[in-house]
Amino acid sequence: MKILVTVKRVPDPETSIKVKPDGTGIVTDNIKWVVNPFDEIGVEEALRIKEKVAGSEVVLVSIGDKVAQEQLRTGLAMGADRAILVLADDLDPLGVARVLAKLVDDEKPDLIIMGKQAIDDDSNAVGQMLAELLGWPQGTFASQIELSDDQKSASVTREVDGGLETLSFPLPGVITADLRLNEPRYASLPGIMKARKKELKEIPVADLGVDVTPRVTITKMEPPPSREAGKIVASVEELVNLLHTEAKVI
């Protein structure tokens, strides 16, 4: 089976993000760039399927600047077969979904796995949009994926408002990965060596003939409002008294 997996280049989640004083973006000095952690989980899941289902192919897709090659090479070193980088700036979620839909028309995968959201804009929209544009069913926030023996349907366990829920739907479909789906592997040294020779195709977005006019544009970024620092109390007794008399919560 052919699996398409998205790979977005994002700042390392361990980095503390600071907004530039003029609000035009985040401070990128000394930032380490990584594969979006939820996408990395998606890559791992696709590789696990490939290990079970003979003849499978894992194709990575990234959209962005040329430097996103680094993240695609990381995914190839983990074990993916080849990669596509669509060169484009500042697409909004619908633009990203439309570009992906065009690639799906060309590649005809049986399954698409994406991170449930990218940890930069936290938007959590592209997977659902892509499923809609393709007319495919979706299983979002997957913490467990099981394919039927004939790979014609998927069963997805997901963490939702009320707890864990299990869905089943026919493939092709879109699945978005949540945190607890798996623990991604590290690329091995032979994997890194092999990745250098794997195909990484670059496509300028204009060549795809897709309408990527943004509906949503970023005007500025702001730090969150700071909360007034509270007081340090000396004892449990003082705390309980303040909670009762001042905060009136107990």
Binding site: I119, D120, R215, T217, E222, P223
Partner: peptide, 14 residues
């Protein structure tokens, strides 16, 4: 909210 609450992003809808 964006970046896990570290920043806020202001969007224009068009």
């Amino acid at each position: 909210s964006a970046f896990g609450g570290d920043t806020r992003t202001v969007y224009d809808l068009a």
